[in-house]
Design a protein around this nucleic acid. Structure first.
Lengths: 218, 218
DNA sequence: ATTATTTTTTAGGTTAATCTAAACTTTTAT
DNA sequence: ATAAAAGTTTAGATTAACCTAAAAAATAAT
């Protein structure tokens, strides 16, 4: 059984490594874990001793099979809980992260099984992120940033990349939501900002920065 | 902010003290906390320094106002979660305790507020135990053990006292549930066991022990 | 190719919650 | 009333997760 902290490390390693693609450095891990590099070294040795990650001094860590599976289980729980909070309890999408960070550590297979059923087996969370299945498999859907989508063509908002509360609140305020149908109607040369039509109803300006964090499908 | 462990101590003190009526001894606390008396002494000093309990050497501890309030908040959360697990997720009443022990420590006022609303402001949990209101107030209902109820008179099962999983499973099996209408139709002299009629439909024998753990109202 | 800089690790220490063993109170039993 | 038993506290260790400061390795810059 993993500790709360060990679980958080695995999750951070998963995200920082891009689902286990590249090695994660001590310093980046220290930053996301809000701790000191020296502490990371300690923990990384511990996880390595448990065969969850492969740790090589001065090089970084890589997720091993078991570690990746564990990380995916935690992500699964996190996203199921977020879905619950929004769909059932009426949280807004900018309010759920902190609470889900706690709920994801509850240990009960039965609970997650029943929660999944109660939510009718959702495949994405309120931010559009995919929910791994019980075995850790993820149904990836090809998405590109709205910033890279051709102008005048309709597309659908599928996910937010950086889901910080303030960004999410901003999106709500201007009327952008998951599944919204949008199209770029103008590009401002000066700063790369875009004028976007939402559901053929309203038009809003969004920064290049924001457009890079909105993932769409054609 | 209290630690997970501190919260559990407060809750245990609340229960062992009978809602704060009598002092709790180090040894009993050690037993329910599954730890050693020496560890209890340490923790009790800590909670005392935080003015949550009054600790007197060799005498025991008493809950102070703030400590009692905290304990009641945790109990509130525990019972709301149990209600959620049974009413919404389809857990049986013997499966919920362990999970609720974890969920009760989630820190989020908003979450409990919304959960309470989602459950439509329940006043008792699946075991018939009262759910404290947000300020910690409990609506006490006078109940007596079925064992002490007069024979032949109808009464209603309101709560279980010792809600161990095996007892709860046994109750389910013989058809006893919260809100069931029952009456004692025979008392066995030999061992104090009772023959009980449930909903005027079926008759079962229950031990004196069991009858003492079933709380009823007339 | 050295030197300087950055990154990472090691060494040694801290805190919360536990433990064991020994000392000390309180209670119980003669 | 005193001795034995039971209960409780103190003292000193341990473990997980962190820390700081110093040493070591890797990377970048002249």
């Amino acid at each position: 059984m993993l500790s709360y902290t060990e679980e958080n490390y695995l999750k951070a390693i998963y995200h920082l490594s891009g689902a286990g693609e590249r090695p994660v450095l001590t310093n980046e891990l220290a930053e996301t874990m809000q701790t000191k590099p020296a502490s990371v070294t300690d923990m990384v040795k511990k996880l390595s001793a448990k065969n969850l990650i492969a740790y090589e001094k001065y090089y970084g860590v890589n997720l091993l099979k078991q570690g990746k599976l564990q990380a995916l289980q935690i992500i699964r729980k996190h996203r199921l809980w977020e879905t619950f909070l929004v769909n059932k309890l009426g949280f807004t999408w900018d309010e759920v992260h902190e609470v889900a960070e706690q709920l994801e550590h509850i240990q009960s297979g039965l609970l997650i099984e029943k929660l999944d059923k109660f939510l009718e087996y959702p495949t994405v969370d309120p931010h559009g992120h995919p929910i791994p299945d019980p075995s850790g498999k993820i149904k990836e859907v090809k998405q590109i940033p709205l910033a890279d989508f051709p102008a005048y063509k309709k597309c659908t908002i599928r996910a937010v990349k950086n889901g910080s509360p303030s960004f999410l609140q901003y999106l709500s305020k201007i009327g952008i939501y998951i599944e919204a149908s949008v199209s770029i109607v103008d590009k401002v040369e000066f700063d790369g900002s875009l004028e976007v039509s939402i559901d053929n109803k309203k038009r809003v300006f969004i920064s290049r920065e924001a457009a890079q964090n909105l993932m769409v499908t054609g």
